[in-house]
């Protein structure tokens, strides 16, 4: 048990580092796409350290104080509920804690906690950002749920291990290929989850500062920063396990998550922003339609 916790802790550290690195890489790639040099890939580590070692910080109250912890623990918890390598004693994290349904609800915990803290700051931009984020969530959850239910019904299991096992035996067994419409729906909703560009109205630095974390500074921000990084990694891992057949070792995990990571990155750099109702309605039409195609197929075939 203790060994398991230790491994999980190490994985978590690795996850945070990987998330920060991915953030740096994304900044670099974005810069190269804009024909400039961009910061080093380690820039996020530097930023994190700077924020972490700031001298002063302000707090607006108890929830404000606790929210970064919510965010970090929520992100870390989500990360730890997803196995990095299914079946591996070292890298399957705490996936015994719950199945996919548990995971999908646990994902919200960190966001909700952070939303509450942000709201306590008393800055109007924070709750505006939060309400936008939640509304957008209502948008992208629909296609995502559709595809997840397709997988659960198809594989007759709700555990990530089970879903990964169902995809073993070659690349064509990946759900990306066996359920292409559901996968497409889920990958479109991933754009919403990552608030990448067409669906970026949540943070919208141009109009509402940076939305929820407007009032956060210093160490608080560093916690949120790391929580956000590891949360992103958790989502990549989740998608890897759901659609790309999981990973048989750490290298594959890196490769696949990196591939998933590139998808929202490329989208984000070439699109303008949608208004909120546009993005919600977008999610409720095309990706939902795609998801329904596979759902209907499953329903009829069963």
């Amino acid at each position: 048990m203790w060994a398991k916790i230790l491994y999980a802790f190490l994985t978590l550290i690795g996850g945070i580092a990987y998330g920060l690195l991915l953030g740096g890489i994304s900044r670099k790639i974005t810069a190269r796409m804009q024909n400039r040099r961009g910061p080093t890939v380690w820039q996020n580590f530097i930023d994190l350290w700077k924020l972490f070692r700031k001298k002063t910080a302000i707090s607006h109250g108890v929830m404000f104080y606790l929210a970064p912890m919510f965010r970090l623990v929520g992100g870390a918890g989500t990360f730890l509920l997803v196995p990095v390598v299914v079946g591996s004693p070292y890298l399957s994290n705490f996936s015994f804690g719950g199945d996919l349904i548990v995971l999908m609800y646990f994902m919200v915990l960190g966001c909700l906690g952070m939303a509450l803290g942000a709201a306590e700051s008393g800055h109007p931009h924070a709750p505006i950002g939060v309400t936008r984020g939640l509304s957008q969530m209502a948008g992208y959850e629909l296609p995502f749920i559709l595809s997840v239910i397709v997988l659960m019904v198809a594989d007759k299991t709700a555990t990530l291990e089970g879903i990964v096992r169902a995809q073993q035996g070659g690349i064509l067994h990946w759900h990306l290929f066996t359920h292409p419409f559901a996968a497409a729906a889920a990958f479109i909703s991933l754009l919403g989850m990552m608030t990448s560009y067409p669906f970026q109205v949540v943070l919208a630095p141009q109009e509402i500062a940076v939305g929820p974390p407007t009032e956060y500074s210093s160490t608080f921000l560093s916690y949120m920063f790391s929580g956000r990084s590891v949360f992103a990694v958790a989502k990549y891992l989740l998608f890897m396990n759901l659609f790309l057949g999981g990973a048989s070792n750490l290298l594959w995990a890196f490769v696949k998550t990196f591939a998933i990571f590139l998808w929202p990155l490329f989208i984000t750099n070439v699109f303008p922003r949608l208004r909120l109702e546009q993005s919600v309605l977008f999610f409720w039409t095309w990706p939902t339609f795609l998801g329904l195609v596979d759902l209907l197929r499953i329903y009829l075939v069963r």
Binding site: Q34, R36, R37, G38, P39, T40, I46, D47, V210, S217
Partner: peptide, 21 residues
């Protein structure tokens, strides 16, 4: 922005004084 690219020095614009240096 792209022409002079201050971001390569690690600089960024942020929208709120709380997070700025």
């Amino acid at each position: 922005t792209s022409r002079f690219d201050a971001e390569r020095l690690g600089m960024r614009m942020v929208a709120t004084p709380r997070q700025a240096d």
